[in-house]
Design a protein around this nucleic acid. Structure first.
Lengths: 197, 197, 197, 197
DNA sequence: GATGAATGAGCATTCATTCAT
DNA sequence: GATGAATGAATGCTCATTCAT
């Protein structure tokens, strides 16, 4: 038997992260006990504390995973060629698709972020701020080129869109009538229509 | 001295509700202990359980209070005279103002609703649904009269706007550059612009 | 409306005692709260404490009621005319019938007596002792006349019989195959057979 | 020092069980707090809940321990060779001796059984029923061979005897005039005399 | 690497009783 | 006679974390 694997064949830290993600999304961070997590992952408490310094670390890692993914994708779309309206549309739609494809992570992000320790919270907010600013830069770029209206402060436009993205976790159901792509296209469309000069 | 008052001059149930609201908003429902609440309200635990059946009841009452307020205001705006675009704009702006004027309640609503007991959760969701549907009816009305685009399903439009409303509690600061009214006008404007045919 | 009556037309103290008897028998003394009792009786806590000094007093009164009844009946049977075997048989059967006709009281007696306050407990034990001794006197009388065997100490004989009486509350069901009278005759018969010289 | 021992040299679960047994017998299940138990055992609450799922589990374990012991002994006596009268007498006396040798367990059994959770209560009743039936089979066997009277239903005979066994805990004192063996012989004698044809 | 026994502070809730009215 | 708000101590139980092995 390979060391540190069992009950699924994946390494222990990944099994723990997967179990924690599912449980945090299902019942919330505070209502998930370390015992719940280790039972779901099929390991012992000692093993968890061997790989993670605290319960808090698990949450932080889940955030980091989602933030890195979304930052990478936003950068790719923003750095692409083409008119800013197309790049913004692509980025705005992509964050929707990514959110829906990682609905557990996004749910945790929306509901449990303020349960991180103060220091880690600060760190996550800083990364999120970077993400926000990259997005805002696109809105401002379109404003300068005249492609977008500048009637609304760009920060507010970004928060308007991200608000709808975070809200997804409260109403989207995979078995509903719309695919992630359809939802994404609609929401990106609403954003672009709102920005028409 | 009036009966059932002390340490602030207000009746005990109101003092408890005020303390709970502040603390739930500050640190979240699960991280606020009943002990914290009664200490902040200057009463004993016995008094709390004399008026409220459970900690959960306090949360439910906070929701009910906000929901009733917002439903009343939405009904008033929706039932008014005038073009649907004006009524929708007024309603869309008003929910923003109301949210910002009851930021603690709204914060709790956004973060802690899923911590209600299953039964109360169901009840709150039903009331919220009624609210959503009244709003959606306005969007659909404008679609029928040709004032609004029908490119996006009305449900999605409503969720787009409410998403930004719930998101307010994560970024709005009373000491920031924009007044509630200004934020409200901007967000209502974005909604109406997105709905232009 | 007559004072101190309502919800059944009986005086408040009797309503309280009836409610307490039912609840104590059903779930035990410690698991019945004063709140449960006043709700079942349709009165307020204040009313209960107006008539009874404590929850303990209710229990004591229930015991007193049963003990007085059984002592009276035993005295009547023991003081009657006729051979001692007949008097003992009648008394032994009667305590069974009385127990089954006041099954709630007897259940409380069996299960909750040791939950009385030390002082009241002592008092109840003293009364019970009197009862035991009157019964034992019958057994001894039959021993002296030669009607009963004296192989077994009379105290033990009495406890043998009363054991089976207390045990009734754990197995007797009013809808079972035997009437109280039939059970009583069988148990008295067993006692008398055991005492045959 | 051996692992998991301290303050008495016995393993923690056994220390907890011993403390619980003594306290439950002394003051009853409901009046013994978990705090009382852990203090008496010299461990912390966490340790108790590490080994037992609930206070209820302790009670259940105490019952199980006594029931297993008595069932084993009854089976041994019932399965022995010899006339049924001798086997019944031996079994009837043995349950008395065993009860007196485990007076705390028996006291708890008599007084607190109905405080078990419904499910565990059902389980205990089922085991007790098995015990009752094995005993009843002996009475019936003697009825068929003509050694015992069949005037009284066998169930009632068994309840008669077990009533006196449960009653032991209310009057027997180790420092009284009779040894367990003497009490046992007397009570078995009463049973056998009652069964004489 | 990994175990699992043990900690100790904290949790929501219950309860018999009191007392000003 | 009777109310019901309020008390304050106690209850069973949970939990993240530590540490000797």
């Amino acid at each position: 038997m390979a060391p540190t694997t069992e009950g699924g064949g994946r390494p222990v830290p990944q099994r723990l992260l997967a179990a924690a993600t599912r449980l945090f999304a299902e019942r919330g961070y505070d209502r998930t006990s370390v015992q719940d997590i280790v039972e779901a992952a099929g390991v012992t408490k000692g093993a968890l504390y061997h790989y993670f310094g605290s319960k808090d670390d698990l949450l932080h890692e889940i955030y980091g995973r989602l933030l890195r993914l979304q930052q990478e994708r936003l950068d790719a779309f923003a750095d692409a060629d083409g008119p800013v309206a197309e790049r913004l549309r692509a980025a705005a739609a992509d964050v929707v698709v990514t959110t829906l494809e990682h609905l557990d992570d996004a749910t945790i992000f929306s509901r449990s972020m303020h349960q991180l320790s103060p220091e880690k919270n600060r760190q996550v907010r800083a990364e999120r701020r970077r993400y926000h600013e990259r997005f805002r830069a696109l809105v401002e770029e379109g404003g300068r080129t005249g492609e977008f209206s500048t009637a609304t402060p760009a920060d507010l436009v970004v928060d308007y869109h991200f608000g709808s993205v975070h809200h997804l976790v409260t109403w989207y159901r995979p078995d509903g009538p719309l695919t992630p792509r359809e939802v994404a296209d609609h929401l990106a469309d609403l954003l672009l229509r709102a920005l028409r000069p």
